[in-house]
């Protein structure tokens, strides 16, 4: 869809730029999130790895960052679904999107605005919980690469959520959680099928076994997430109210 008018018609010279659209939608999304319940629930869920770290520290369990990382991956199956999947799904299902489709904006910018607002929140919560948990358990900061791996997992899982929510808005959150739980299970199986698992690639990238760091997990995650992102952006272009 064009963002500029082809011919000069009265009133058409004020079509918003894509940047302005994305920023406006990101701002609105953050305001709505801040005034809803999702952020509080997300915060409580994020506290689970921290509580786990307190518990194992109190019982003097030897540190095993991989275990805590797995707990964070479990949260990865929920938080992107709660934030991204629910936000996009509700927008379409509750028909507030009709206001947006009637505006002179590119539809993909709606998805981009939501992702710009919500992905950093998901990353902050998950990586923050992981960081705090490791600090509590080991008195040391987690490795930078493990934080990057978790952040990359958040981005990939958010794109999965966006894709699923545009296709099945009514059940966007539930189906995303289901998909990511299956993803977690597939990642645990010792066959090449686990290459398709976002959570498995995040674990490989985090590199807890000390093997040389490679970009292969990033590429694999990017391919899977990119496909879901394409589904989302293609679907939203054709969505009708």
């Amino acid at each position: 869809m064009s963002q500029t008018s082809q011919t000069s018609q009265p009133g058409e010279n004020l079509v918003p730029t894509t940047l302005s659209t994305v920023l406006t939608l990101a701002g609105v999304t953050l305001k709505r999130l801040g005034r809803g319940k999702a952020l509080g629930i997300g915060g409580l869920l994020t506290a689970l790895p921290i509580l786990y770290a307190f518990a194992v520290r109190a019982r003097h369990v030897p540190s095993a960052p991989g275990d805590l990382f797995y707990a964070s991956l479990l949260l990865l199956t929920m938080l992107p679904a709660m934030f991204v999947g629910a936000s996009i799904g509700e927008e379409i299902e509750e028909r507030t999107s009709t206001y947006l489709w009637s505006r002179p904006i590119a539809r993909w910018a709606v998805l981009a605005g939501k992702l710009c607002a919500l992905v950093p929140i998901v990353i902050a919560l998950l990586v923050g919980g992981w960081y705090a948990g490791i600090r509590i358990w080991t008195d040391a900061a987690p490795s930078a690469v493990s934080c990057v791996a978790l952040a990359a997992g958040c981005i990939a899982a958010s794109l999965v959520a966006a894709g699923i929510a545009t296709v099945v808005p009514k059940h966007g959150m539930a189906l995303t959680i289901g998909y990511l739980l299956v993803d977690l299970s597939i990642g645990a199986i010792p066959f090449s099928l686990n290459e398709l698992s976002i959570t498995n690639q995040a674990r490989l990238l985090a590199n807890f076994d000390g093997s040389p760091v490679t970009v292969t997990p990033v590429i694999a995650m990017a391919v899977v997430a990119g496909l879901w992102g394409l589904v989302g952006f293609a679907r939203i272009r054709r969505l009708e109210a």
């Binding site: 709505r32 009709t98 505006r103 002179p104």
Partner: peptide
């Protein structure tokens, strides 16, 4: 549906009540 610019000249109020209620 396809031309973004022409939608600048249109104001639409839907029939349903749902809006961004948090705002």
């Amino acid at each position: 549906f396809h031309d973004v610019a022409v939608r600048r000249r249109i104001g639409y109020a839907p029939e349903h009540e749902a809006t961004w209620d948090e705002l």
